[in-house]
Amino acid sequence: MTRRLADIADVRSGDKGDNVSIGVLARRPEDYGAMLAALDPARVRALFGDWVRGHVEVHPMPNIDGALVLLVGGLGGGATSTLRFDQTAKALGNAILRLPVG
């Protein structure tokens, strides 16, 4: 069975202007490499489709076995003007846990 990021990592997300900030944390240090490999910017971009208007940045944080994923233009205009129910992207980050882990 295909492993997904949900099997090895946790997420906390929120808004930063019109950008969505997604902190991803590997549960075990030995999974940090696999987690980082799964967070390919192009695959992240494809996952969120037209909900992300800009580019995707992935910043490794090896000191905490984590990474910070930034969806630029990912909030539909920002918390105060987006049409989405999840105005501050508290829930949106969890979607990244669908990505397959090699």
Binding site: K16, G23, E57, H59, N63, L68
Partner: peptide, 24 residues
């Protein structure tokens, strides 16, 4: 850790008026 990564941009340079912190 969960809160360290909350609502930030590039973790190598978290900028606020008092300075810039490197969360890595």
């Amino acid at each position: 850790k969960e809160h360290l990564v909350y609502e930030i941009g590039d973790p190598r340079g978290y900028p606020v008026p008092d300075g810039v912190a490197d969360f890595t």
